[in-house]
C-alpha cells in the first residue's frame, strides 16, 4: 500500500496545486511532503490516541483519493467536481486537502516550516513569478525588467 499511497499523493498533489507532476518532482520535496502528510516519522508530541486517529484519517483520505481518481479517469470536469465536493471542504478528512495545498505552496505544515528546503521550494513564489526571499536569487538588476 505504501508505494501506492506515495503515487496517489503525487497524483492528487498535482490536481490540488495546479502544478504538474514533473514540476512537483522538480522541487525535490515529494518524499518529504508525503512523509509529513502520512506522519512518518511520527511526531513525538502526539499521543498514541491522536496518532491512531490521524493514521485512520490519512487512510480514509487516500482511499477517497483512489476512488475519485478511478471513477473520473475519463472526465476532467467530473474529476474537478469530485475533488471540490469530496476533498476540499474543511469537514472532509480534517481539511487534509487544504493542508496539502498549503504545504506545497508555503512549505508550512500547521504553524511550522517543514524545513529550510520546504520554505525555499514553496510554490507560491513561483506562482508570483518571483523567488523565495533570501534564496534562489535572480541576479543583479533582474528586478528592473519583467520576469524572464
Amino acid at each position: 500500500m505504501a508505494n501506492n499511497r506515495a503515487d496517489l499523493f503525487l497524483e492528487i498533489s498535482a490536481l490540488l496545486t495546479g502544478f504538474n507532476k514533473a514540476e512537483l518532482q522538480g522541487t525535490g520535496m515529494v518524499a518529504t511532503y508525503y512523509n509529513t502528510v502520512a506522519n512518518i516519522p511520527q511526531d513525538p508530541n502526539y499521543s498514541d490516541q491522536e496518532l491512531a486517529a490521524n493514521e485512520a484519517n490519512v487512510g480514509f483520505f487516500f482511499e477517497e483519493v483512489n476512488s475519485i481518481l478511478k471513477e473520473n479517469k475519463k472526465d476532467e470536469s467530473k474529476l474537478q467536481q469530485a475533488i471540490a465536493g469530496r476533498l476540499m471542504p474543511l469537514s472532509a478528512y480534517n481539511g487534509l486537502a487544504q493542508s496539502i495545498i498549503t504545504l506545497w505552496y508555503t512549505g508550512s505544515w500547521g504553524a511550522n516550516v517543514v524545513n529550510a528546503q520546504a520554505y525555499i521550494q514553496g510554490l507560491m513564489w513561483d506562482t508570483a513569478e518571483a523567488h523565495p526571499p533570501g534564496a534562489k536569487q535572480p541576479g543583479f538588476g533582474s528586478w528592473s525588467f519583467p520576469p524572464l
Binding site: 514533473a22 514540476e23 518532482q25 522538480g26 522541487t27 525535490g28 534562489k136 536569487q137 535572480p138 541576479g139 543583479f140 538588476g141 533582474s142 528592473s144 525588467f145 524572464l148
Partner: peptide
C-alpha cells in the same frame, strides 16, 4: 550582460529541478 546573469541563475534552478525528476 546584466540580463545574461539573470539567465545563468535561472539555468541553475532549472537544472537542479531536472535532477530531482526521476
Amino acid at each position: 550582460l546584466m540580463k545574461g546573469v539573470a539567465m545563468m541563475y535561472q539555468l541553475k534552478y532549472k537544472a537542479i529541478a531536472l535532477m530531482n525528476i526521476p
